[in-house]
Amino acid sequence: MMISNEALAAGLAQAVARHLGAAVGSKPQVAELARLTAGAANETWSFDVIGRLASGEQRRIGCILRRSPGIGDEGKSDTNLGKAGEAEVQRAARDAGVAAAEVLFILSPEDDLGDGYVMARLEGETLPRRVLRDAEYADLRTHLARDCGITLAQLHSVAPARLPTLTTMGAAEQIERYGEVYRAFGQPVPVFDLALRWLADHRQEPARLTLVHGDFRNGNLMVGPEGIRAVMDWELAHLGDPMEDLGWLCVTSWRFGEIDLPVGGFGRREDLFAGYEAAGGGAVNPDAVRYWEVFGTLKWGIMCMIMTHSHLSGATRSVEKAAIGRRVSETELDLLNLLT
């Protein structure tokens, strides 16, 4: 659903009054509405709510809207969680102690703004290259890998009963799914076939099934100089092998050039594992983490193909999507390094 900024601001003001009620007083206003990111699957908007309470006191709340514009299937997550489900997972994780933005409300049908939710806006750094290079984060980089381990242990401890219904996706389902997607493009990448075969041959049973974030990496973490402020982008959440999140965080593509520091380009695996175990995540299986790192490297390569074919098919023409097809070779080299 396409919508003008004016219509969105007016609709949001009504939705805020409907869902937040007395917390923002009567006739709340929406100001400073600005789109932060746009995509076929997701739009992110920033805005302020200005309300006047019954006491006469003015109240200003910084907000983020995450919304699915609902155009096309490209980029649609394979978890089919929907924005409401995403919000519920984020809320449950925050309740369990995971650093995440507070969900203020989920859009309802009478809001007529599509599928989405509104959360409190936090301040912090999300750009990987700044996290890896700015002097401001030099101290953070000494403990961020351990902090990630602690956060993942908390995330994997969220009681399933507190979560919405989630798809269970283990290694077998994901290899099958991404293998099919890759083969359907009819574009031969022999290293991908080698990796798919290796993944099928080396599959191991997970020690347990837990909530898996699905996209926990440098770039989806909001940090401050003191530590992680928020885990973002919950749309790929599912039930699966918790080691998947640890492996994905170590994929070379998410090291942003700092390839000797496997954890997000900022830390060592030992520190990630130690933080995870110290925070009650249970014993880390380094072989399983490595397995998921191989899978994650392949998955990112196939995701690059998916994006570039969405340009080639005409679904979403974009020079950025055209260019990303030429990043497949990066993942091929990283896969060869892992497999041979």
């Binding site: 290293v191 990043r327 091929e332 080299l333």
Partner: peptide, 13 residues
């Protein structure tokens, strides 16, 4: 495969 990937990267990135 390594030689082929290295050739692709010489062009791509």
């Amino acid at each position: 495969l390594r030689s082929t990937v290295m050739a692709k990267l010489a062009i791509d990135n």
